[in-house]
Design a protein around this nucleic acid. Structure first.
Lengths: 216, 216
DNA sequence: CATATTATGTACTGTACAGTACGGTTTACA
DNA sequence: TGTAAACCGTACTGTACAGTACATAATATG
């Protein structure tokens, strides 16, 4: 009667998580409803609870998956050439664009909001995202230092600071839901500013002097 | 922005708001309960609703008040002397300490979490806090530039960047609820780092050179 | 075809909450 | 001392939700 095509368990699970992801990201944990999710999946609540024993479990599954994919995007370092400056700029571009995107924004909001009730979430974001990302970037920093483009310093701290510089003014405005769409020109400006600030702090004397012309 | 002041009975109103503030900051909007608040105030729900027509109104009243007091603390510039460097360092110390405190942390979390459902909140935080704070700091920047300690640049952008530099690594960890208590030594390190970074970017050549020794 | 598994809709339980109704009680004050 | 406003407790309405029960239908496997 209802020509429902039977699909494999994994696919159904994926479909549930996809819908749940949208609901949780848009509504937050409390306001998202299991009945709503079941309805949008097209199945029934009974089936939903057959796959995930509780709302909490579904939420955690979604957050873990999203954490893995997003963080993998966020902290990717494309070593696309020999020039460390190019790699650095490419990283800033990717990172800043993503940080200001709807998806990362929404996810970040959820993590911050729910990390009080569910501390595991904040720890996951830190351990599997941020920390791992910085570890990856250490290699990039070392390359720059070995090439003489960056000052000799603790590469871990340097990586940490690059990320810090990338999350700027626009990020705050997005967190407060003031900017819904960020004009590309502003993103470009933010990228240039973050790169320049980083080079002014960690670049060799020559690069730092050049970068400092950005500030004044 | 929500001036609904009743004549007389100010103490009771204040008592309600004090309790509501604690509840909202600890539980968030959804999980905070009006019955709970009424009980903790010592009164009844009828009285509570006599003062605030709805949960939403009470929430807004609390957020507005908290916004005003917190932001006033956060963005205060103590011009306690003639030396701009001292004023600058004092500002960093005050700002960073407050940003990492329980109160500001909790409030920031609420604003981020609820600015989706209540966009007015994010706008209030921006308009009456952040924006106004930066306007105040512009004066400080101008002083530094006039004194020749800072490079000539747009004082507004410079002020914006100082704030940006102050919200560092530790702020992220607090947002994710990983650090509950921040060791004072780490706070001091963060203060020194932010000051140094700012001077390396916006300080005159002499100060910038000195500040850059911090990085490597 | 027989049987075990899985999906289905519907309707239920229990709970928690915002907001209201109301009759009685305290307080302010004239 | 009288009166009106403010307050109180309690119990209520209506709603929304997580999670469950159950009887039925579709599918797979043998």
């Amino acid at each position: 009667m209802h020509g429902n095509i039977r699909i494999g368990k994994d696919e159904r699970r994926a479909a549930i998580m996809e819908v749940a992801r949208e609901e949780f990201l848009r509504e937050g944990y409390a306001a998202a409803s299991m009945s709503q999710i079941a309805a949008k999946v097209g199945g029934s609540k009974a089936t939903l609870y057959a796959y995930f024993p509780s709302k909490r479990d579904l939420f955690f599954a979604v957050v873990d998956a999203e954490s893995a994919t997003l963080m993998d995007d966020l902290y990717r370092v494309d070593e696309n050439g020999t020039d460390v400056r190019v790699t650095l700029a490419a990283f800033c571009r990717r990172f800043i664009s993503l940080v200001l995107s709807d998806e990362v924004s929404a996810f970040d909001r959820i993590v911050i909001a729910e990390s009080v009730r569910f501390p595991e979430i904040g720890q996951a974001a830190h351990q599997f995202g941020y920390k791992r990302g910085i570890d990856r970037m250490e290699a990039l920093m070392r390359m720059g230092m070995d090439a003489g483009l960056l000052r000799r310093a603790d590469p871990h701290t340097a990586a940490e600071y690059l990320l810090n510089l990338c999350s700027g003014h626009l990020h705050k405005l997005r967190q407060w839901n003031i900017l819904s769409d960020v004009p590309p020109a502003q993103i470009e400006a933010q990228i240039a500013l973050a790169s320049a600030a980083f080079l002014a702090l960690y670049g060799n004397d020559e690069m730092a002097a050049e970068a400092r012309t950005f500030f004044g």
